[in-house]
Write a protein that binds this DNA or RNA. Structure first.
Lengths: 208, 208
DNA sequence: TGTACATCAGTGAACGCGCGTTCACTGATGTAC
DNA sequence: TGTACATCAGTGAACGCGCGTTCACTGATGTAC
């Protein structure tokens, strides 16, 4: 190949990360991927791997960082798109499901990583989820949608929301990405879960 | 070894399954385990594996079956131990956490398998969780604790409860099994999640 | 009860293969003058 | 603008090793008579 070298800085790095996600998207588990396998999928020689990553764990950690960016993009869109208060849940789940479909392999990686082999990746993903829950609580406070709840109780509810949404991905793992009907069912179910949680949060103070 | 053969029927089978769980308990992911590795851990020659399992996937499926037994034992205990209605949630979470600690590796395997590599194991675990949710709904109906809810809405609430409890395991993965304080925190948090869900379910009909 | 035979769980040697990792290399790009 | 040099991403050969799987074997247990 005449033009194989230094074409774009770290083009190969992206190819390797994408290759790992592609393999996850094909049903493989990240923990069972090997260096040679990933480089093969990326169309790159095995030794090129070490120019960018020290190990598969290292690659996993860098994927978590990118996952963080994807989630921040999702939050930004959700914020710029606030409908009337009653529709907020439904609309948020819409946005969430759309991003989940557009970045399917990222979220599959997330679902795997939560119980994955690397402690560092586990903790990284948990940290992203905590951040997401904290931002959600902030937004609800700012919009005065939960003013009767104490900070602690709002955090509790938001944590539960984020867990419920994260669990949705293990549902999505069992469904073809083109199966619109099933995905629609998951979406509706998730919306109802969140509604139930927020009804619970609304009546929380008075009962406990 | 003089007494190495046919000592107990399928003693080796149990050793192999336990060995796989032990490795999971040490932080390994099931998807990355190999046959030689498991047999080494079990103190058995590699070829012995094939006397009992066709592949690691096969072993995983048989672990799911045993997981089902563990869960049924847990349900039985919860049923035989019904306190006053207000304490039912707390008491159930108690029982659940105790079984989780006694069978830590089983539930770690469950958390991994939900997003694991084998479709069959994934589906098996999902099926166990569905069964668990359905039994929970039945019990609540029988105890007349949810008589104002339609069957569909009660199923919804129970599904959400089971998901929340299942997610608890990914919390436990990040905590040492001896860290009583942290486990206590997880337990209290889970109890509050369930209370919030049931308060939501109680007010569900009137608001939706 | 004793004997002959079938069954089959566990053994140990052997195979070919793909793995992770090392190394010296090459040649395009960026920088100094 | 042109030249000399340093940098470093990607290459390809090579290594030793552990992997999954096969095979013929052995000998304890269960069964038939």
């Amino acid at each position: 190949m005449a033009d194989r070298k230094r074409r774009n800085p770290s083009e190969t790095r992206d190819k390797l990360m994408t290759a790992a996600l592609d393999l996850v998207g094909k049903g493989r588990h990240f923990a069972s991927l090997g260096i040679r396998e990933v480089t093969r999928q990326a169309g790159v020689v095995p030794t090129a791997f070490y120019r960018h990553f020290r190990s598969m764990d290292d690659l996993g950690l860098q994927l978590v960082d990118e996952l963080g960016l994807v989630m921040r993009r999702m939050m930004r869109e959700a914020r710029s798109n606030v409908p009337q208060a009653e529709k907020i849940m439904e609309e948020s789940v819409n946005i969430f499901i759309r991003h989940a479909r557009d970045n399917r392999t990222f979220f599959m990686f997330m679902a795997q990583g939560l119980a994955g082999e690397s402690r560092a990746v586990q903790e990284g993903i948990r940290s992203e989820l905590r951040f997401f829950a904290a931002e959600l609580a902030n937004d609800l406070r700012r919009l005065r949608l939960a003013s009767h709840l104490s900070d602690g109780d709002l955090d509790l509810a938001c944590d539960l929301v984020v867990r419920t949404v994260a669990f949705t991905f293990t549902d999505m793992l069992g469904v073809s990405p083109d199966d619109d009907y099933q995905i629609d069912q998951i979406q509706k179910r998730t919306t109802r879960f969140l509604q139930m949680i927020f009804i619970g949060a609304n009546h929380w103070q008075s009962e406990s």
